[in-house]
Design a protein around this nucleic acid. Sequence first.
DNA 1: TTGAAAGCGCTAACAG
DNA 2: CTGTTAGCGCTTTCAA
Lengths: 354, 354
Amino acid sequence: MTDRTGRRNVPDTHRRSESRYGNRPTMKDVAARAGVGLKTVSRVVNGEPGVTPETERRVQEAIDALGFRRNDSARVLRKGRTASIGLVLEDLADPFYGPLSRAVEEVARAHGALLINGSSAEDPEREQELVLALCARRVDGLVVIPAGDDHRYLEPELKAGVATVFVDRPAGQIDADVVLSDNYGGARDGVAHLIAHGHRRIGFIGDMPRIHTAAERLRGYRAAMEDAGIAVADAWMSLGVTDPERVRRAAREMLSGPDPVTAIFTGNNRVTVTVIRVLAEQTRPVALVGFDDIELADLLQPGVTVVAQDSAALGRTAAERLFRQLDGTLPRPERIELPTRLVTRGSGELPPAD
Amino acid sequence: MTDRTGRRNVPDTHRRSESRYGNRPTMKDVAARAGVGLKTVSRVVNGEPGVTPETERRVQEAIDALGFRRNDSARVLRKGRTASIGLVLEDLADPFYGPLSRAVEEVARAHGALLINGSSAEDPEREQELVLALCARRVDGLVVIPAGDDHRYLEPELKAGVATVFVDRPAGQIDADVVLSDNYGGARDGVAHLIAHGHRRIGFIGDMPRIHTAAERLRGYRAAMEDAGIAVADAWMSLGVTDPERVRRAAREMLSGPDPVTAIFTGNNRVTVTVIRVLAEQTRPVALVGFDDIELADLLQPGVTVVAQDSAALGRTAAERLFRQLDGTLPRPERIELPTRLVTRGSGELPPAD
DNA sequence: TTGAAAGCGCTAACAG
DNA sequence: CTGTTAGCGCTTTCAA
């Protein structure tokens, strides 16, 4: 059972009847043992100047003997900075987010901060719940890959000075820093690549258009088609949840019937993987370009041509911006767009089969 | 400077001039605004009983108006539990750890806890640094994928009641809960599989034996070979850092010379991927079984046979054990071993080429 | 049903 | 160089 701030509400009758923290020594204990004042211990622990080597030694001895470890909760309460930042993303298990998360972590580490992660599972409510829980911990900053499209709930936090950067998708209804890939341009380039190789009936399988990246990629697809003077048939497009079953069905439908597509543009890595499986069952070759790179794409037959985005760069850029916000060296919110890269490996260069 | 306490004749002797947290409202502010006592606000915020609906409404109104968010640092300081756990692993960007981390997060979430991640980059010092930083934050528990092999530095923490579970590799020099894959058995089965398909000269490319999993897999390899009465030549084994360059060289060496191996057993996912690339350049077919599953393994030609471990299950099991430690429902440290699964896809069933 | 007072363990500010 | 005092914002205790 959780209350409205998403916290545990369990009676903790077990354990800790004695003291909190299972009876950990405090600075006072260390001071007593070393026969010095509290503040002197604080100085030693924090490496502040103004302590005789001899005194320092005595204090250090007491620290080691007692197994003392400074309680950062108390420190935070006093100082107001937690030296931790929060990262809310869709799913840590997705290979797209691993490198992103790692990149954020590295930047945080360089600034002496720890990283708290949360997966929203693409659920706006869960995103909000996570973000607010992080704010309650008073993280210094927040990197958010939005699941929802209304972030007004963050207004008090922003006003209170919580540094915030949105990544991969823009914030909804509030003015904040955003770091994105050029989803529109990347998709347009990818589709134009297929067109350049002679395709005209090109399918698009992507996520629900309420997701910003999905909408942008769809827009890129439409633009490339329009640039080439091709009228897009409804039957060529599939927009919705990208679970394997649905994607498989969509791909098969596009590939059958009287006027099948000769190429498919896939809207994200999960879709690409599923479509590769479908294409493997086809008798005639079908061209494929996918958004997002996938591992081992070069070893498949044919190699998979992709529009690659640099997820680590997204994370790094966002995190660096976050810490510049905290430094106060950042004037006002900006929208940064990172380029994508077309990686040709074979599947996107197949000629139309008809 | 605004007086946010407003109305009523509340003595404003305690007004905070400028505060940390960028001037966030506190319970005191809310209390003043709602014209109630501090404790009443606390009751409302925590959903405690004993507040009139009317009072509750007034308080809630003040909370919303002020954008109040409880400061968990202060709460933690008082209560002693942080409702957060730490996870230290090697590299979040590694596809093996993504699902593991996500699984830990899910269990944590079910217990109302947040997850703080850190990557050790396989560096024992960094592991210790991270773990101690997490302890300073007073995380309730710790899931650690060890980089080092001496964890005595954790003794004071364990004594102080920090729940701890080691995953993937055992703890060094201390008695603690451990959740492992059956690395020995898995490797033995994988190599036996190759032997069953007629191979006798089988190569092994794995990580430094100081890493427990690497040593165990090597042991499995040796056992399978010995079971089959095959004497292992030194030239068939490569143990060390698994960067692509070194692995590539090692593989090529095994595959050349007067007495080349006809099959290779690879010690982890990164090695497997590199070796697949090397095998792709070979003229004659070489059999391959890899430890760890890899994405798209089924779509390669031939499909890659692997000894799969369930990284999500490792994470889930560890996290569940952690929370049972916190419940106090766990008697004493145990060592849990999860089975691996041989997934045959073609590469492991190729006959010897000589 | 409500609230005042006393800390949790630490650091800031100021004395010695 | 060292120590004392006063909080940080919250929960606990106990009294009204």
